[in-house]
């Protein structure tokens, strides 16, 4: 009796979670433009999607910013984490508290604050400002995923390398970095997903010059539902699910594969 009730409850929750996604996917193949009416199967929205120059451009900006901001924030974040780990307790507390601000602050506040800064500095909003903004909110996550690995590290590990004849820079490259690599990789993955996923901060910092996918979807959606967005959503959703499954599969087999 309880078991059946539990199953029904979970079933209803899953229905709630998946109904919108399924409807979205189904209607991306709908011949009719109307949202409630099924007019037969078609792939024309997908075809239209690939012809759309605006969407191609937005995809380009999204990927460009994601890749660049991931590379920059991973490098800067890892180096900063190494520095912070070796700071005095007081300095570390101060730096980490400031570092946490973009994580704790609502995105909209981070977005308008950065926009205010860029405009006050006389910078033209566009690709560069969006990229800077993405780096700003990604670094804290990289630091937060690298620091625990540094803390887990036996405090004598670096000394052990020196003891065996390694110079400090050799010890850093061949021992410390490989030991904290899982943290660096998960920080990079986090930075990449956050950048791909971000709308709010991009919206305030990209201006009208560099429209990425999420900004484009927002402006299209505000004007009303369009079947091309259904097609785009379906493709993005499937890409993400496949990517995440691959990542999870790999990390299941052990962290070494992630390297």
């Amino acid at each position: 009796m309880m078991k059946v009730a539990k199953k029904i409850y979970m079933g209803l929750l899953y229905l709630f979670l998946y109904a919108p996604i399924i409807v979205l996917i189904v209607f991306s193949f709908n011949e009719s433009k109307s949202r409630g009416h099924w007019g037969g199967f078609t792939l024309k929205w997908y075809a239209e999607l690939f012809r759309d120059r605006q969407i191609r451009e937005a995809l380009y900006y999204t990927l460009l910013v994601a890749v660049l901001s991931t590379v920059i924030s991973t490098i800067v974040g890892t180096l900063a984490a190494l520095g912070i780990h070796n700071m005095s307790k007081l300095g570390r507390t101060v730096v980490l508290n400031i570092n946490n601000l973009p994580v704790l602050n609502p995105d909209i506040v981070t977005g308008v604050a950065l926009m205010t800064l860029f405009i006050s500095m006389g910078l033209e909003l566009g690709l560069v400002t969006m990229l800077i903004a993405h780096v700003v909110f990604s670094i804290p996550y990289v630091i937060l995923s690298v620091l625990p690995k540094l803390r887990q590290l036996n405090k004598h590990t670096a000394e052990a390398a020196l003891d065996l004849g390694a110079t400090p820079s050799y010890a850093l490259r061949k021992v410390i970095l490989p030991e904290i690599m899982p943290g660096i990789v998960s920080g990079a993955l986090m930075a990449f997903t956050l950048s791909i996923d971000d709308f709010v901060i991009s919206f305030f910092t990209a201006g009208t010059e560099a429209t990425n996918l999420s900004i484009l979807i927002y402006s299209m959606a505000k004007r009303g539902v369009k079947p091309t967005i259904n097609a785009l959503s379906t493709l993005m959703f499937i890409t993400i699910v496949v990517l995440m499954l691959i990542i999870n599969k790999k990390s299941d087999k052990g962290e070494n594969l992630l390297l």
Partner: peptide, 20 residues
């Protein structure tokens, strides 16, 4: 510096390199 001393150490809790 330690890396130029002909002395080696067995550390507390060993400090092995877990990536090797």
């Amino acid at each position: 510096p330690p890396y130029k001393r002909n002395i080696n150490t067995v550390f507390q809790r060993y400090a092995l390199f877990t990536h090797l």
